[in-house]
């Protein structure tokens, strides 16, 4: 007996090309991200992984091809509404506390109070969330940033090097959060260099081509 899942949104990508600096940097990306699925994005630095993720998330233009949500929606605005993107930069303001950062994001995402508590719980932020964010370690800031995933309550997560700068215990926690998200029907795309493991994840490999 399985309960109806919370999320049922997927992403279908067909022959997408993206540009950086006015030049096509990656082309021919075609894949499906079904509800509950996980997809690694691997490839050398500068091969266009970040640009691809940002374009899919609706934060940068897609040059050619199409990326549409299943069951519906393909505009950048529709994708922004369904996808949360967590990039290299943490978006954390050092001058205020972690909690103030959380409160700002929670307002933008329209998250109720209990979801903020869930985010603190999920990434184990309680010990340092009231300290000024400027005093936190790199790993702690990363966890604070990742808690946006919970606050957003969106079905699709696009993560760019999420486990950079965090220790093994925190990485395990991230894996558990991702597993729980997939169990609810959410899907993730993770660009990563390190040996992060996700059960049943497929891998999208980006091949940089020298001329």
């Amino acid at each position: 007996m399985s309960e109806p899942k919370e999320f049922s949104t997927g992403l279908t990508v067909r022959d997408v090309a993206v540009a950086r600096g006015g030049r096509t940097i990656l082309e021919g990306a075609s894949f499906d991200l079904a509800p509950g699925a996980a997809l690694f994005v691997k490839g050398a630095n500068g091969s266009g992984k970040t640009t691809l993720l940002r374009a899919l998330a609706g934060l940068a233009p897609i040059e050619t091809g199409e990326a549409h949500l299943t069951p519906e929606g393909s505009s950048p605005a529709a994708r922004r509404a369904a996808i949360v993107y967590c990039g290299h930069a943490n978006a954390v303001k050092a001058a205020v506390s972690g909690r103030a950062n959380l409160a700002f994001w929670a307002t933008l995402y329209g998250a109720p109070k209990d979801r903020t508590e869930a985010a603190i719980e999920a990434f184990d932020l309680a010990a340092f969330v009231d300290a000024p964010a400027g005093a936190l370690s790199q790993g702690q800031r990363r966890r604070l940033a990742l808690s946006r995933l919970i606050l957003s309550a969106k079905p699709l997560w696009l993560l760019d090097e999420p486990s950079a700068a965090i220790d093994a215990a925190s990485a395990a926690r991230l894996s558990a959060v991702i597993a729980a998200h997939r169990a609810r029907g959410g899907a993730v795309m993770v660009a990563t260099h390190d040996g992060m493991e996700i059960d049943g994840a497929r891998t999208l490999t980006v091949h940089a081509r020298a001329a």
Partner: peptide, 13 residues
């Protein structure tokens, strides 16, 4: 823009 906050602001707008 530099610290990534603008992504969140654009994403949620």
């Amino acid at each position: 823009f530099e610290d990534g906050s603008l992504d969140v602001i654009v994403e949620t707008a």
